[in-house]
Simulated assay, not measured.
Amino acid sequence: MALITVSGYPSSGKTRRAGQLKTAFEARLQDPTYVGPKLKVVVLSDDELNISRDAYKGAFVFGFDLWPETDVLADSRSEKPARGALFTAMQRQMGTDTILIVDALNYIKGFRYQMYCAARELKLRVCTVYAVATTDLCKEWNKSRLDGHAYTEETLDNLLLRYEEPSSMVRWDSPLFTIPWIDAEIPADDIWKAITEGNVKPPNAGTQAVPKAPTDALRALEATTTSTVGAIMAEQAASGGLGGAVTLGISSEIVPSITLPPRNITLSELQRIKRQFVTVHKKAITLGTTEKGAVDWSEKSIAHKFAMYIEENLKP
């Protein structure tokens, strides 16, 4: 159904905003006047996955390290698997019957783009909620936490420096809803409209699985084109080069039609056209094809395509 990415400084109130969203959406879904599809609202967070705040202690900031290099390398390595665990859990939870709210730091724009692409693969609507608070407030709220999930001072300072603010100008952060700390309520109606009525963007071409040809496609391509050339030469010899519409009897099941020009076609001419055809289709077989739907690599299909290709290339 939809993916909502909650982003903001650490200890900026993201969890509160995610909770407000969940409450508002569940109330709407349970309203007797609601007539839409049956949906569930799920909030996914680091706390749900038992990801420690210490996992975000990576300390390289714009080429500078804040602690001795050995500590930095050890700390920064822990952040990647933490993001990986979050991303994997997000993929498991996403679905056409789920409004998924990801309540995590989501402070790296590259990671937000990765989440955006995953949602597009499933044709889900997306939006970003930006929980805004000043750095001083974040530090104050972090110190006052009593749930055992406070950041250390060093980690908090590091994350504040590394935060990459979402922008409505980029597609993976759009539509963007910015909610400052002074707002007691959230624009629940506008967010609901975005995730239920907004455009569903097609999957990114760069992330789509490329259909592969069957293992015998190269053999079928070579054998069928060779047989077609032989059938054309035999038909031409029988008709005396009169041309016109003919049916090539390659086999009992493969009988493509072709219109030949009223002249003698040389074998070298047909061999040249065959090489061109085979070269183009070999690339599609070995590298995959971006054509929509399944591509038919049967001998019958190849023969008909090759007959059309010859006909086009023999036109005066």
Rank of each mutant, 00 (worst) to 15 (best):
243 G>I: 15
52 S>Q: 14
124 L>S: 06
279 T>I: 01
271 Q>R: 04
285 I>P: 14
265 I>Q: 01
273 I>G: 13
176 L>H: 05
162 R>F: 05
281 H>R: 04
190 D>S: 11
51 I>E: 08
296 D>S: 07
149 H>M: 09
190 D>Y: 03
171 R>L: 06
101 I>K: 02
255 V>W: 00
134 T>H: 09
281 H>T: 02
216 D>C: 15
95 G>M: 15
110 G>S: 13
267 L>N: 10
188 A>N: 11
10 P>E: 06
49 L>A: 03
198 G>D: 11
227 S>F: 00
107 Y>N: 13
119 A>K: 03
271 Q>N: 03
135 T>I: 12
233 M>R: 05
28 R>A: 05
123 K>I: 04
71 D>Q: 05
266 T>M: 10
162 R>M: 15
201 K>T: 06
264 N>C: 00
31 D>F: 14
312 E>S: 05
309 Y>V: 14
188 A>R: 02
187 P>I: 01
48 E>V: 03
7 S>Q: 14
14 K>H: 12
115 M>Y: 10
272 R>Y: 02
302 I>A: 06
9 Y>D: 14
179 I>S: 06
63 G>K: 08
252 S>P: 00
257 S>Y: 15
231 A>K: 12
148 G>T: 02
59 A>H: 06
143 K>L: 15
87 F>G: 00
217 A>C: 13
247 T>A: 01
159 L>Y: 15
54 D>F: 05
101 I>W: 07
61 V>Q: 12
202 P>Q: 01
219 R>W: 14
195 I>A: 12
280 V>A: 06
243 G>K: 09
43 V>N: 04
84 G>C: 08
271 Q>V: 01
22 K>Q: 08
76 S>M: 07
119 A>D: 07
197 E>A: 02
292 K>G: 07
291 E>M: 10
126 V>S: 06
131 A>E: 04
135 T>A: 15
295 V>Q: 15
151 Y>A: 00
187 P>Y: 12
144 S>Q: 10
166 P>K: 03
120 R>H: 03
42 V>R: 13
40 K>N: 13
243 G>Y: 00
303 A>R: 08
236 Q>R: 14
184 A>V: 04
174 S>L: 07
46 D>L: 04
119 A>R: 10
32 P>V: 00
157 D>G: 08
34 Y>T: 01
49 L>T: 05
237 A>M: 13
223 A>V: 09
262 P>S: 09
114 Q>K: 12
61 V>N: 03
177 F>Q: 14
17 R>M: 06
262 P>C: 05
316 P>V: 09
225 T>A: 06
229 V>N: 03
44 L>E: 11
222 E>V: 14
191 I>V: 11
101 I>D: 11
131 A>K: 08
28 R>T: 12
40 K>G: 06
260 L>N: 01
81 P>C: 12
280 V>R: 09
166 P>L: 15
306 F>D: 01
124 L>I: 00
197 E>H: 03
313 N>Q: 07
195 I>R: 07
273 I>F: 00
269 E>L: 14
186 I>D: 13
49 L>N: 08
190 D>L: 10
180 P>M: 04
253 E>S: 07
8 G>A: 05
237 A>K: 06
283 K>R: 14
219 R>C: 08
251 S>L: 09
302 I>Y: 08
15 T>D: 04
221 L>K: 13
39 L>Q: 03
28 R>E: 10
29 L>G: 05
230 G>S: 02
156 L>W: 09
234 A>P: 13
214 P>Y: 09
149 H>L: 11
226 T>M: 04
238 A>V: 01
302 I>N: 07
154 E>T: 00
270 L>E: 09
